[in-house]
């Protein structure tokens, strides 16, 4: 049989040869020479794998007084009196079943938590929650009624004018409101590892945003 190799094929073969030489370097476990290992004597008596419940749980109670809402970004909440739960708790048993619960500032405006459970090396399910609140200002001013709703309207005594200086009711109609944005995210996940060389997962997340932002617009006024 006659076999012809063009330059391109030769280049590919040469590249494959280089690649396999590169791949062969290192300590890839699949290449380990275990022919002399007597695994029946590898009982690992001294291995003290952690079982049972371990970890930390903390609760916190705090008081703050601030004259600027933006401070709440760093404090994690704008409540004067705040309570929170922190947790980092793990459970594991001899059969490999395990569970873990993590919580950070749970109960405050900026917080997160995750609960996961499963069997090590087989499957894992998890549920998670994250809330991020961005505090902008508590001194935003507007003359519009219905802030936060789908419809904004001007007060009945509003004086329409072409410039703010001519809007005589502006100063009396302005009122302050809080501007912040709260994001709440919930998630569910499942992960499966086969004994063969494959694994799969599915994750679902939903985030809800609620809050106020500024906007502007131009309007035509017939006088």
């Amino acid at each position: 049989m006659k076999c012809k190799l063009n330059v391109f094929t030769l280049a590919m073969l040469a590249q494959a040869g280089i690649m396999s030489a590169v791949m062969a370097q290192g300590f890839d476990l699949s290449q380990a020479n275990t022919s002399k290992v007597k695994f029946d004597k590898w009982v690992c008596k001294a291995c003290k794998a952690e079982t049972g419940v371990n970890g930390n749980i903390g609760v916190g109670l705090g008081y703050q007084h601030s004259d600027d809402l933006r401070a709440a970004n760093a404090m994690g909440t704008d409540n004067e009196l705040a309570a929170k739960l922190d947790a980092d708790v793990r459970y594991s048993n001899e059969q490999g079943y395990n569970a873990e619960f993590n919580a950070d500032n749970l109960g405050m405006d900026n917080s997160r938590a995750q609960l996961s459970a499963g069997q090590a090396g087989h499957y894992q399910v998890n549920a998670n929650f994250r809330q991020i609140t961005t505090f902008d200002t508590d001194n935003a001013l507007t003359p519009y009624l219905g802030v936060g709703s789908d419809q904004l309207s001007l007060p009945n005594n509003w004086v329409t004018a072409g410039s703010t200086s001519a809007m005589t009711q502006l100063a009396t109609d302005l009122y302050a409101f809080d501007m912040d944005l709260k994001r709440q995210r919930y998630g569910l996940g499942f992960e499966y590892q086969s004994e063969q060389l494959w694994q799969t997962y599915i994750n679902y997340e939903r985030e809800q945003k609620k809050g106020l932002k500024t906007s502007s617009g131009s309007s035509l006024i017939n006088r």
């Binding site: 590898w42 009982v43 001294a46 003290k48 794998a49 952690e50 090590a120 090396g121």
Partner: peptide, 30 residues
């Protein structure tokens, strides 16, 4: 004897033994 051979000397190290608190030291996972 696998890990038992290593731990004859290295079990005195807290850092070595801390392996068994994490997934790489799990004796119950395939």
């Amino acid at each position: 004897k696998g890990a038992d051979s290593c731990l004859m000397c290295h079990k005195k190290s807290d850092k070595v033994m801390a392996l068994f608190q994490g997934p790489h030291g799990a004796t119950n996972s395939s």
